[in-house]
Design a binder for these strands. Structure first.
Length: 705
DNA sequence: CCGGTCACTTAGAAAGAGTCCA
DNA sequence: TGGACTCTTTCTAAGTGACCGG
């Protein structure tokens, strides 16, 4: 969709045009493109003009290469972290064997964490349930009170769940003023904790909120999912801050665990989480100079790989047939990492979900079919990687032999190498090179290529350009296997669109049938003006979903039902004495048609009447050639739009475009493309991404990755 | 070399905000 | 006009890879 919806966006657009599109005449087209759209769609008005136009430090302008990059800052001031509110008991019981059980606050809190997730996948996950229940039993055993609770299956958390639902509902029903007050409060907090002073500049802090307690929500088959993630106290937190800065005040009655002044790291605070013993950090926001610098560095490193890639590929291709087993394994792994954008695959512990990357692939993760290799394994976040691919014969032979050597499921395919070794080898080929650089390189490179392949010109509409961009984006997302859960009601949504499309096709066809006989008397030249061929093509039946009489009856029944609803509403809301009669009359005829239709439908199976019945109010009458023709044109446009929407939706159902846009595609490719095609970068980078990619916004229109 | 630690990037889910459409 | 749907932001889990000490 092409929508310029609100004031700020329009504002941004103008500013970006002014700031980074130096040639004014060129931006004229783009401005026009936006203007009409903007005028048409703009509705919501919001004040908020600021968006901090403060004289910004443009760090990317003075990158004098190799400064000491172990020191990350010289001045650092911040306000510390924000703790979640203390627990407030609600006193809602759970049921055990149907009997109410009231819980002391600490236990009630824990149980509440579970009750809130009752209707989610976590709540239904046996591991999650078991881990949670063990935690609960532990807490109960430590309590002075005696609880009757012994078995999970005899618990009923519904009362608490329903209580939470009710609360959510109430929150939704809050008055405007209350909501505004809440927002104000949030703003105040952000103002205080959301910023720090870094080398004299005010920069945004990312996650200054301490993670609230809850149940650990591990992904996939994580053995610890459902474990109690405890409340974090000031005593567990280490603050990192400038020597001269004022140390932030810990909550009353508490002390920071530690305060350090480490200039070689970028975090402001750190603590250890209790479930997996992982370290959690408070970092600056993605749009900060520190993050921006390393982002730029990442892409520059990937571009550096461009200069070496031919040699490196030659190198590992040759090594595929090395007599040394280790070398052969390394080369094969590199081939997979380079060709299929696999992750390195560090080894993992037993207390984590069983997921793999390249080096940790096992016997069972590859099979061989029709001369191709099938990869099927769970990768990061337990996302399934399934790919049936053709590979170089040497790679095929190697994989077969590695698998044979592994003998049985559970054993490593690449038994002689690991990520450390692989990366060591890579860094010997190019300084700073590691496995993950290939993902960045291939993603950005693919994106640029795909974008060039697209059949668009600067004259193309915004819609076409957006489509082209997203297609290229999608190629990258597929390459990197970035997935998302299929939306809850996806198939319903799909068939809804498909149904709408069928309706449009039908309407288009009957209008064509109506018009056609009227064209025969026209002169040949005139007839050419009303060429129906493309429209006839468009409204041809989808072979998978032909228009049957049965469908037709449902279609009209649907139309009738909707019309009736509309009229009923009208009757209820603004019926006056004068129009009440006509409304009633219409209603009566509609419902009589509806019952006629229903009985016709009933009779369908028995009698095979050839001509479907059409309710009177939906029969068409011919008016004029021009009118009829323009109706067909309109319908055609809608058919085409609906068709693309359908294809797009289906292709997008499991592919997540965001991850590659945020992490893998050099933003300068997008910026330069936007400049070349005269389309505002806002179309592809929402506010936070523009913030994150500030450093890329002035990329030249001839920028090449 | 190896295992552990540390710091950082990358990831999908969930929450929240905005928009669309009947 | 409000409820469904979509897009954006936030949240925090899950990776990568360097380094360190034995």
């Amino acid at each position: 969709m092409v929508v310029v919806t609100s004031e700020p966006r329009e504002d941004n657009f103008k500013r970006v045009i002014k700031r980074s599109y130096s040639d004014d005449s060129e931006s004229e087209v783009a401005r026009k493109k936006i203007k009409t759209e903007g005028e048409k769609k703009r509705r919501v008005k919001r004040e908020q003009k600021e968006e901090e136009e403060a004289e910004e430090y443009e760090w990317w302008r003075d990158q004098n290469g190799d400064k000491d990059d172990t020191i990350r800052w010289t001045q650092l001031e911040h306000q510390g972290v924000l703790f979640p509110p203390e627990y407030v008991p609600h006193g809602v019981p759970i049921l055990y064997d149907g009997e109410k059980v009231y819980l002391e606050p600490e236990i009630e809190e824990l149980v509440g964490f579970f009750a809130a997730l009752l209707e989610t996948e976590h709540g239904a996950n046996p591991t999650f349930q078991r881990n949670f229940f063990n935690e609960l039993k532990l807490l109960m055993s430590k309590s002075k009170r005696k609880y009757p609770i012994k078995e999970f299956s005899r618990c009923d958390f519904r009362p608490m769940y329903e209580y939470f639902q009710k609360q959510k509902e109430e929150k939704k029903q809050m008055s405007k003023e209350e909501k505004a007050a809440l927002l104000e409060e949030r703003k105040m907090i952000e103002e205080k904790y959301g910023y720090c002073i870094l080398d004299g500049r005010r920069e945004k802090v990312g996650n200054f909120r301490i993670e609230p307690p809850g149940l650990f929500r591990g992904r996939g088959a994580h053995p610890k999912t459902g474990c109690y993630k405890r409340r974090v106290r000031a005593e567990q937190i280490t603050i990192n801050i400038g020597k001269d800065a004022k140390i932030p005040e810990p909550p009353k009655g508490s002390k920071w665990g530690n305060v350090i002044h480490d200039q070689t790291v970028t975090w402001l605070a750190m603590w250890k989480e209790n479930v997996n013993d992982n370290t959690k950090y408070v970092f600056l926001a993605a749009g900060s100079s520190l993050k921006g610098q390393s982002d730029l560095k990442k892409y520059e490193k990937a571009r550096e790989l461009k200069k070496h890639i031919v040699r490196i590929r030659k190198d590992y291709m040759a090594a595929l047939t090395s007599s040394d087993g280790k070398t052969r394994q390394r080369a094969t792994a590199l081939y997979l990492i380079d060709r299929f954008a696999l992750r390195a695959g560090n080894e993992k512990g037993d207390d984590q979900a069983d997921t793999v990357g390249c080096c940790s692939l096992r016997y069972e993760h590859v099979t061989f079919e029709d001369g191709k290799v099938v990869f099927d394994f769970l990768g990061k976040d337990s996302i399934r990687y399934y790919n049936k691919v053709e590979v170089h014969p040497a790679v095929y032979r190697n994989l077969v032999s590695f698998q044979r050597a592994a003998k049985t499921p559970g054993n490593l395919l690449f038994s002689l190498i690991n990520t450390v070794e692989l990366n060591k080898h890579l860094s010997s080929l190019m300084p700073g090179l590691s496995a993950k650089v290939f993902r960045t390189y291939n993603a950005s490179h693919t994106f640029q290529q795909e974008l060039e392949k697209q059949d668009v010109t600067p004259a193309s509409s915004i819609h076409e350009l957006t489509l082209a961009y997203n297609r290229a984006n999608r190629q990258v997302a597929v390459l990197c296997n970035h997935q998302r859960a299929v939306a809850k009601n996806f198939s319903g949504q799909l068939s809804k669109i498909a149904d709408r499309l069928m309706g449009l096709r039908y309407e288009c066809r009957r209008h064509i049938d109506l018009l056609k006989p009227n064209l025969t008397d026209l002169s040949l030249a005139d007839r050419a003006k009303y060429d129906l061929a493309p429209f006839e093509q468009a409204c041809r039946d989808d072979p998978d979903r032909p228009i049957t009489t049965e469908w037709l009856y449902s279609y009209f029944a649907d139309l009738l039902t909707k019309d009736i609803e509309r009229l009923e509403k009208k009757k209820a809301s603004d019926a006056t004495q004068s129009n009440l009669d006509s409304i009633e009359e219409k209603l009566a005829s509609l419902s009589s048609e509806l019952s006629t239709l229903n009985s016709k439908k009933e009779a369908l199976s028995s009698s095979k009447s050839s001509k479907p019945y059409i309710p009177e109010m939906y029969r068409l009458t011919f008016n004029s050639i021009d009118k009829s023709f323009s109706t067909i044109q309109r319908l055609y446009t809608r058919i085409v739009a609906t068709k693309t929407a359908l294809v797009d939706k289906d292709e997008n159902k499991t592919t997540a475009l965001g991850t590659s846009k945020i992490n893998y595609i050099d933003p300068r490719i997008t910026v330069s493309w936007c400049k070349k095609f005269d389309i505002p970068v806002e179309k592809f980078f929402p506010k936070t991404l523009r913030e994150k990619f500030k450093w890329a916004m002035h990329a030249d229109k001839n920028f090449k990755f």
